[in-house]
């Protein structure tokens, strides 16, 4: 398997974690009680400041892996490390984590500001600090004026922005995103991709982003982890060397198309091998 991957110009990292490693998965395996083999021998190292996309078809275990990083699921075998610690760290400066789900997952009974404030309420941050951080987070996603609105009054794209603001309010150093823009139309999606990329570039933030869109993965990432299905496994890792500031021009550049081609080939070969 590893041999074939190397043939197509990509290497699965087997390096050990160092002081800059934010997330580390070593020989992680996941089998569900019903026999589904969701993940097989996954090794992955994510460094501080990287924007990593997990790319693959449905059933390749990319969401499962992300949920493990979030502490919502346990591996059947192997182990995970967060900032070089075997357990998920408690909230503290420099090691905070937030997650954005597939759906906006907002509380329908609470207005936008209360939704964004929720994680701060739960960890009992100082009251004045909460308000300041909520205002700041809403400004970052361009929703300052909507803080009194209820989720049902907002469009899908705006709801997703609120969801992102809620994650940003935690001032996370690690942001896990599970196909956050999958349900949005292409224009909204491109806009949010660009905004997200700019947000990431301006702070000490590591992002792990699950997607099944090759274009989205190339546009956003500094590294793309390509995954295959049944069982879910890592096929290869591709570094994306694009410009630091990416805009719509990047989407039509030869470089962009080249990376799309590479990723597409990797995915296709993985599926042919499997068949």
């Amino acid at each position: 398997m590893l041999m074939k991957c190397q043939e197509i110009d990509s290497v699965v990292s087997t390096v050990s974690p160092d002081s800059d490693t934010v997330l580390f998965a070593n020989r992680v395996d996941k089998t569900y009680p019903n026999g589904t083999h969701a993940l097989d021998d996954v090794r992955l190292r994510i460094q501080r400041g990287e924007f990593v996309s997990l790319l693959g078809p449905s059933g390749c275990g990319k969401s499962t892996l992300l949920r493990m990083f979030a502490g919502l699921e346990m591996p059947s075998a192997g182990h995970l490390r967060w900032w070089n610690e075997p357990r998920m760290p408690d909230y503290r400066q420099g090691r905070s984590m937030a997650m954005v789900f597939q759906e906006a997952t907002l509380m329908p009974w609470a207005d936008v500001a209360s939704n964004v404030r929720l994680p701060l309420d739960l960890c009992k941050a100082g009251v004045e600090e909460r308000e300041a951080r909520v205002a700041q987070a809403l400004e970052l996603v361009g929703l300052s004026k909507s803080h009194k609105s209820y989720p049902r009054e907002l469009s899908g794209g705006m709801q997703m922005r609120v969801s992102i603001a809620r994650a940003l309010a935690m001032q996370p150093n690690l942001l896990l995103m599970d196909e956050p823009f999958g349900a949005l139309d292409e224009f909204t999606r491109n806009k949010l991709d660009a905004d997200l990329r700019a947000l990431w570039a301006n702070r000490d933030l590591t992002v792990v982003f699950v997607t099944h869109s090759i274009y989205e993965a190339v546009f956003l990432s500094s590294k793309v982890v390509v995954m295959g299905a049944s069982p879910g496994r890592v096929i290869g890792e591709v570094d994306i060397e694009g410009p630091a500031v990416r805009d719509e021009n990047f989407r039509v550049s030869p470089e962009f198309l080249h990376y799309c081609q590479v990723l597409s080939d990797l995915l296709t070969r993985a599926n042919v091998e499997h068949d």
Partner: peptide
């Protein structure tokens, strides 16, 4: 209860 919200609460160690 929305399972997504339940996950969110769990994630934030409610």
């Amino acid at each position: 209860v929305n399972p997504g919200l339940l996950n969110l609460f769990k994630l934030n160690r409610a």
